[in-house]
């Protein structure tokens, strides 16, 4: 079986040495010297965070080498994920979970896939699409579903200028119930008073 040529770049010498020993321990892989990285079939990049510097390196590698990248890093957010994908990252391994077996498996899968993203990464991209749609239709996660129908009724009448007694009469509730509903909304949404509750609900399209 042909050995997979791998180039490794870690942000600190200890990680470089540790990951190199993982990669060198397997006969299926050949770890290239830094000078030969252009011949790599897979790049392994390890870093704490996806800093501007790391992204610049990844972009350069994507342009010069074009090989799929296995990225080892700590937490990665959605924006960073998109940047990573743009730079040909096809596998992301959390640093704390890296073992020789996992790393080698990811490298071999990356080599076999030839740059095609594996299902788990495609799944993350689909989650991005879902979140995007949610955010556009309900900015800041605000929508009427955060209020109960009873709360919406009370807030609508408050917005119409009715006082507690009048709201109670209109909705056939006791005054105590109306006060409890108002207290519940203002407390849960951390609003200052009734006016703030009405303004908030109107502003966010809840009523």
């Amino acid at each position: 079986m042909e050995q997979v040529r791998v180039a490794l770049q870690a942000s600190d010498p200890l990680s470089q040495a540790g990951l190199a020993s993982y990669l060198q321990s397997r006969p299926e892989l050949t770890l290239l010297r830094s000078a030969d990285r252009a011949e790599a079939k897979v790049l392994v990049v390890s870093c704490d965070r996806l800093t501007t510097e790391v992204v610049a390196t990844l972009r350069r590698s994507a342009a010069e080498v074009g090989a799929p990248v296995v990225l080892i890093t700590n937490e990665i957010n959605e924006s960073e994920l998109l940047t990573a994908v743009e730079c040909r990252v096809v596998a992301i391994l959390p640093r704390v979970a890296v073992t020789a077996d996992r790393l080698v498996h990811s490298v071999l899968a990356a080599a076999a896939g030839g740059g095609v993203m594996p299902p788990n990464l495609v799944g993350e991209l689909l989650k991005h699409i879902e979140r995007l749609q949610r955010d556009v239709l309900a900015p800041n996660g605000l929508n009427a579903s955060r209020l109960t129908p009873r709360e919406v009724d009370v807030l609508r009448l408050m917005a119409d200028g009715l006082d507690t007694n009048e709201i109670a009469g209109e909705l056939c509730y006791s005054e105590r119930t109306v006060k409890n509903v108002i207290y519940g909304v203002t407390h849960r949404l951390k609003l200052r008073n009734r006016s703030h509750a009405v303004a908030y609900a109107l502003r966010t399209g809840m009523i």
Partner: peptide, 29 residues
């Protein structure tokens, strides 16, 4: 991955998706 919903300056990535699809890197059933 942390929970979704980070405040992104430009949350859209339509061009990236087009590139991924054009290069055959994004394949969906």
């Amino acid at each position: 991955m942390p929970p979704d919903g980070d405040a992104l300056p430009n949350p859209f990535a339509g061009e990236l998706f087009l590139t991924l699809a054009a290069e055959g890197r994004l394949v969906l059933d």
